[in-house]
Write a protein that binds this DNA or RNA. Structure first.
Length: 364
DNA sequence: AAGGCGTGGGG
DNA sequence: TCCCCAAGCCT
């Protein structure tokens, strides 16, 4: 056995499972994806919940399932509508992968979500955690579903001092779960570990006195619960200065651009923008960019109407925004459009550019 | 392995 | 204000 898992040898595993699952049966939150075990809905919820809080996900989940109630309806849905349903949730590659994987399930598996580790893991956007979550929650299979909650909870119960920021550490916890998981109810066991992490065994100031498994917890016994888990923090973020244009034509239509299908905010729409230059005034940089890149002649106002600060997980933006008018005409393409203010609502924008639009409306 | 990839909320 | 977090995955 792994040296990190010696505590398990002296655990009463049956009692641990029972205490944990009984607590979950009593205290679990009433969440929309817990209404049934439809593998499709479990799948959608697990993708949405990646790095995202329950409270944030709930309204998105309800709307998404209403719009796309089944594999077949999502598989045949218009890409732009699917992306719009994800607008504001972040990590947009999740929805692109989900849409693509759902199409694959429809074509290759007759619209039935695979129920084997190999099958489920082959789907785009389904990694080790999500595979285990779907297999255990939707299909009752005793597979580990190790997320941040599970690593935090088990690092405390089993006194595991490995750095959970290291990718290789997940395997230690998967092995632990394989030893601990209830074969009678793997679904509740996995969900209970995560629910415990969310409600009781929280990152800071865990509620040990309310914990249903504190008798089984080595960290509680030693008083080390606030020192665990060990997690090295990553380095600070870089900063980028942008200049953007809120450009309208003579009919008042607004110029928007679709971002590339890879990288940051892929496939989302934006107001034309470019990184600032040290050498030239932002207004001049924007003017040149619109002419060179889109062959658009513009008259840009002398002073900007807004400066938007936006923070991502790995970088920050400051966007200085200028209003302007097109002089001539544009050739519209699939990635460059002129739209009315009403039509803007049909396109998915990142939050940073939603801020631009709000500032513009206040200004005019 | 390590960095890219969003957003909103809490201490 | 700043830093960290929240049911990770991909390259």
């Amino acid at each position: 056995m792994n040296e990190n898992l010696k505590i398990i040898e002296n655990m009463n595993i049956k009692a641990f499972q029972n205490d944990l699952i009984s607590w979950f049966e009593r205290e679990q939150r009433d969440l929309p994806w817990r209404k049934d075990q439809d593998p499709y809905k479990v799948w959608v919820s697990e993708i949405m919940l990646q790095q995202t809080k329950v409270d944030t996900v709930i309204p998105y989940f309800l709307n998404f399932i209403e719009q796309f109630p089944s594999i077949d309806e999502l598989a045949t849905a218009d890409e732009e509508k699917v992306l719009k349903a994800w607008e504001g949730l972040g990590y947009y590659s999740r929805v692109r992968n989900l849409h693509s994987a759902v199409k694959e399930v429809k074509e290759k598996y007759e619209s039935k979500v695979p129920d084997t580790p190999k099958g489920i893991s082959s789907l785009k956007g389904v990694g080790p955690y999500t595979a285990g979550a779907i297999l255990s929650i939707a299909y009752g299979k005793p597979e580990p579903a190790v997320d941040g909650n599970v690593m935090r909870v088990l690092s405390r119960i089993l006194s595991i001092w490995e750095d959970i920021a290291k990718p290789s550490t997940r395997k230690v916890f998967e092995e632990a779960v394989r030893l601990l998981i209830s074969k009678e109810n793997p679904s509740y066991f996995n969900q209970a570990l995560m629910e415990l992490g969310a409600l009781i065994c929280t990152p800071t100031s865990p509620s040990c006195l309310l914990c249903p498994v504190r008798e089984h917890c080595h960290a509680f016994e030693e008083g080390t619960q606030t020192e665990l888990p060990v997690k090295t923090r990553k380095k600070s973020v870089k900063h980028v200065d942008l200049v953007a244009g809120l450009i309208v034509n003579k009919e008042g239509k607004i110029l928007i651009h679709k971002r590339p299908n890879k990288g940051l905010l892929a496939d989302l729409w934006e107001f034309p923008n470019i990184e600032k230059s040290q050498l030239f005034h932002p207004r001049r940089v924007l003017e040149d960019f619109l002419l060179d890149e889109y062959k658009i002649e513009t008259e840009i106002r002398t002073s900007s109407f807004a400066k938007i600060d936006h923070v991502f997980s790995h970088l920050t933006w400051e966007i200085e925004v200028f209003a302007g008018e097109m002089v001539g005409k544009v050739q519209e393409t699939s990635t460059l459009k002129l739209v009315t203010a009403e039509e803007l609502g049909e396109y998915a924008f990142p939050v940073s550019h939603q801020k631009i639009w709000k500032e513009y409306q206040q200004m005019i």
